Computed example of a mutant assay.
Amino acid sequence: MKILDKEYVVDAGADFVMCQGVFDLQTFKDFYKRCRQHQIDVPIIPAVYAINSYSVLKNLMNFCKVVPPNYLQTMERYENDEEAITDYSVKYVSDLITALLKDKEITIPGVHISCFNNLAMVQKVLDKLDFVDLKICAK
């Protein structure tokens, strides 16, 4: 992930940074730490993608180059099975959200779940999360 330029982000008045395309905890942590080293001290909100089809992933990869090989390989294996892709994506995203929110090296105010106009995917991810364990109040 490319580091942001404080002069153009925070000094220009940004209240937060929305980081798109987070597929991996360590990659986000590295980005987060580099931002902090450059005095970018506003909240950084990672966005995760809840994907329910291989074609959506392929389109996403046209502009997002940070898809981990293991994720891509699994999605390719399930290419023609939308139910398996949905199940895998929901588990992957909910596990990633849990890891992001529980990590002791970073502090984030939340996570943006990008669902490509499929709100049912967001509900499936939310249903998989343990709000008590994450210390999140769900209303």
Rank of each mutant, 00 (worst) to 15 (best):
L100C: 09
L134S: 08
Y8H: 13
S55Y: 08
Y32C: 09
N80V: 03
R36H: 08
F28T: 02
I97L: 09
Y8D: 13
V132H: 15
A14R: 08
Y32N: 10
I136M: 15
D11N: 10
A84P: 05
T98W: 09
A99K: 15
I44N: 04
Y92I: 09
S55L: 07
L134M: 12
D81Y: 03
I97R: 07
K139W: 06
K102N: 14
C64H: 05
C137L: 15
M18Q: 07
L119Y: 12
L129I: 08
T27A: 13
V93F: 05
N117W: 05
L57Y: 03
S53F: 04
L101C: 10
A14Y: 10
D95N: 13
V9Q: 10
T107S: 11
A84H: 08
V125N: 02
F131G: 10
G13N: 12
V122C: 14
M75F: 10
E76T: 11
V66S: 13
S94L: 11
K135Q: 14
L72H: 06
N70E: 12
A47K: 00
A12F: 10
V90G: 06
D41L: 15
Q39P: 00
F28D: 00
S89K: 09
G110R: 01
N70G: 05
F16I: 08
N80L: 05
A138W: 07
D24E: 12
F63Y: 12
F116Y: 11
F23T: 05
E7P: 01
N117H: 14
L60T: 03
P43H: 10
L72K: 13
D130N: 14
G13P: 03
V10M: 11
V90M: 06
D15I: 06
K29F: 02
D103R: 07
V9K: 06
I44T: 10
D87I: 04
I85F: 01
I85T: 09
P68D: 11
K139H: 10
I44Q: 13
D15N: 13
D5V: 12
T74W: 08
I51M: 05
K33R: 10
Y78W: 01
I97G: 11
I136R: 03
N52I: 01
Y88T: 02
K135H: 13
Y92S: 12
P46K: 02
D103Y: 13
A50Y: 04
S55V: 03
N80Y: 08
L4N: 13
A50T: 05
L129E: 02
Y78C: 11
A50P: 02
R36I: 04
C64V: 10
C64P: 02
V42S: 04
I51C: 02
K102C: 08
K65P: 02
Q123R: 14
V22R: 07
A84G: 04
K91E: 15
E7F: 14
L119A: 13
C64Q: 06
L96P: 09
K102Q: 15
V111R: 00
C19Q: 04
L4W: 01
K33Y: 06
F63Q: 03
